[in-house]
Design a protein around this nucleic acid. Structure first.
Lengths: 197, 197
DNA sequence: CCCAGTATAGGCAGTCACTGCCAGAAGGCA
DNA sequence: TGCCTTCTGGCAGTGACTGCCTATACTGGG
C-alpha cells in the first residue's frame, strides 16, 4: 500500500472534494451543481476532480475504505459459507465505524437513493466488484448459479440499504443487511407468510 | 389504449429508429455512434429521437411490448405465489414470441451486457417497474422484505439473462429464468452444494 | 370537403459531463 | 542540490440532453 506524500495528499484532496460535493449536492440538488462548482469549493481544478473520481456520481459513491481493502472477502469466500462470511464482514465493517463515518454514509446513502443516476452507478459498481470477488473465489465463476447469486445478493443488500434510508435511518444498518442476507439464504418461498409460527 | 393514426405512426417510427440504432451500434460500437447518426439513418430529427426515447440507452432497452401491457402482473401478484406468477408470466411471454422477436431480443441483450451504461439503465428500469408492481399488489409495499425481494428478483433475472448471453444464447432463455427463480425460491444456503443428492 | 383547434416534429441555441493534449509544478531519489 | 518521474491545471473539443419557438400534421365537427 502506497504511503508516500503524494498519495496522502491525494487522499486528503479526495476527502475535501467529496465533502464539498456532498455539501453542495445537499444544498442545491445533485443536478443543479456543476463539477466546476465542486472544484471551486474544494479549491482544485475541474480536471483534477475528473482525474480522481472519473464521474460525477463517483463523488457520492466513493468510499475511502474501498481504497485500502485488498479484498479480504475473496479469501473468506472459498469456505463453505459465503453468506456467513459476507454477514460477518458486513457486521465487522459497521462495528468498526465511528459516528463520523456513519454520518458520512447516511449522507451518501440519502443522496444515492434520491437520484436514480447515482443509484444506477452504485448497482453497477456492486455487480462488478462482486463478480470480481466471485471470480477470485471460484474458478467456475460463470455458472448460472454464481451469476444469479451475485446479482441477487447485490440487489438484496441495496434493497436493504434503500429500506434503511426510507425508514429514516432509525435502526442500525447492519440489522437490515442481516435480515436481507437471511432472506437470501432461506429463499422467497411464499413471501406473504415470511414469519412462520 | 390509443389506436389513432398519430400513435401508430409514432410506434412505427420508434421501431424504425430502434432498428437503425441497433444496426449502427452493432456495426460501430455504442459509444462511437452519435444520436445524430441514428436520427439520420432513421430519417428523423435528433430532437425526435430524444422525445421518443429520452436517453441513448433507451434506444436499446425499449421494448414495444411494454407499451401495451397494462400490468397483468400486478393482478396475479395478489395471490399466494408471486414467484409462480412471475414464472408463468415469463414463460408465457417467451412462448408467445416469434423468431423475429426473439432475434431482436438477442441483439438487444448482447448490446446491453456489452455496455455497462446500458446495463445500469436496465437495472434501474427493472427496479422501478417492479416496485410499481409491488406497490400495486401490496399495500404495505415498503417493508424490508418487499424491498429486498424486488431488488433480488430483478438482480436474479438479470443475472440469468447475462448468463444466457455469456453462454452464446445456446439454450432457450426461459430455462435460465426458470432456474433463477427456483434459486430465489429455495434460497442460497450453501451455494457450493447447490445440487443435493 | 373544409375549417378551426390541438398535438406533434424539426430547428436552434445553450448547458454541462467528460476527454485528450500539453506545459508547468511538485514529489521522489541519488 | 539536481535529475527524473509523476501529477496538476488550463485549453479546446465532443456529444448527450433540454427549452423554446415555428411549421406541420392530425382530429373532430360542421
Amino acid at each position: 500500500m502506497d504511503t508516500g506524500l503524494q498519495h496522502r495528499k491525494k487522499l486528503a484532496a479526495m476527502r475535501r472534494i467529496q465533502e464539498a460535493a456532498l455539501d453542495l449536492f445537499e444544498e442545491q440538488g445533485f443536478d443543479e451543481v456543476a463539477i466546476e462548482a465542486v472544484a471551486a469549493a474544494a479549491e482544485v481544478s475541474p480536471r483534477t476532480v475528473y482525474r480522481y473520481f472519473g464521474t460525477k456520481e463517483m463523488l457520492v459513491i466513493w468510499d475511502e475504505e474501498d481504497e485500502l481493502t485488498p479484498s479480504p472477502l475473496a479469501a473468506q469466500f472459498t469456505g463453505d459459507d459465503p453468506i456467513g462470511a459476507l454477514r460477518e464482514a458486513t457486521r465487522a465493517g459497521f462495528a468498526a465505524m465511528g459516528e463520523d463515518e456513519l454520518r458520512l454514509i447516511r449522507r451518501r446513502v440519502a443522496l444515492i437513493y434520491s437520484h436514480p443516476s447515482i443509484e444506477a452507478a452504485l448497482v453497477l459498481n456492486g455487480y462488478e466488484k462482486s463478480r470480481a470477488i466471485a471470480a477470485a473465489a471460484a474458478p467456475d465463476g460463470d455458472t448460472l448459479e454464481v451469476q444469479v447469486f451475485v446479482h441477487a445478493f447485490v440487489g438484496g443488500v441495496l434493497g436493504a440499504m434503500r429500506h434503511w434510508w426510507r425508514s429514516g435511518f432509525a435502526t442500525p444498518p447492519f440489522t437490515f443487511v442481516d435480515r436481507a442476507l437471511t432472506l437470501l439464504e432461506r429463499g422467497f418461498t411464499d413471501p406473504d407468510r415470511r414469519n412462520p409460527s
